[in-house]
């Protein structure tokens, strides 16, 4: 454990930085593992149960390893009105996984978020932070194929 999360002090050590610490872990590891929970608990001097409490409260934190390409499909109001339910269904059908899951080859994972701030170009999704806008059936397939081809 000691070596693995040695960067934690970068987030500070006061309890107020607990969320920041967890965000740091997630940005480095991609998710927050059980080992990470133990390390964070020890570092901030906060019981593990409380760390879990904070983790489960915030939608941002992942407890399982996400795919190489993390797809955030927007289900904010604008995207919902413009058909994000269907986009999510197509995505699930194309990749064979649902919300919060990762494909077996570890390439893609899907999470649903509420608004990427690009509502004027709805419906949108982000892949590793890059926003793809005005999605439809065809562009969705094309985008997925582009990412698949890179591997």
């Amino acid at each position: 454990m000691s070596g693995a999360f040695s960067y934690l002090p970068e987030a500070g050590s006061d309890k107020g930085s607990l969320i920041k610490g967890l965000q740091l872990v997630q940005s480095r590891e991609g998710y927050v593992s059980d080992d990470a929970v133990r390390a964070v608990s020890a570092h901030f001097g906060v019981p593990e149960a409380e760390v879990e409490g904070v983790l489960t409260f915030y939608a941002q934190f992942k407890r399982t390893k996400p795919g190489k390409y993390q797809i955030s499909i927007c289900d904010g109001t604008a995207c919902h009105i413009k058909g994000s339910t269907q986009i999510a269904a197509w995505l699930a059908a194309e990749l064979g996984i649902g919300n919060g899951q990762t494909t077996e080859d570890g390439l893609f994972s899907i999470e649903t978020v509420a608004c990427l701030g690009c509502c004027s170009l709805a419906p949108c999704m982000a892949v590793n932070g890059k926003v793809h806008a005005k999605l439809d059936r065809k562009s969705l397939t094309r985008i997925l194929n582009e990412y698949k081809k890179m591997n």
């Binding site: 927007c74 289900d75 904010g76 109001t77 604008a78 509420a114 608004c115 701030g117 690009c118 509502c119 004027s120």
Partner: peptide, 12 residues
């Protein structure tokens, strides 16, 4: 925090 999903003036 701009929590209203569908609002983006603060982002902008």
């Amino acid at each position: 925090d701009e929590g209203d999903p569908g609002a983006f003036m603060d982002r902008s």
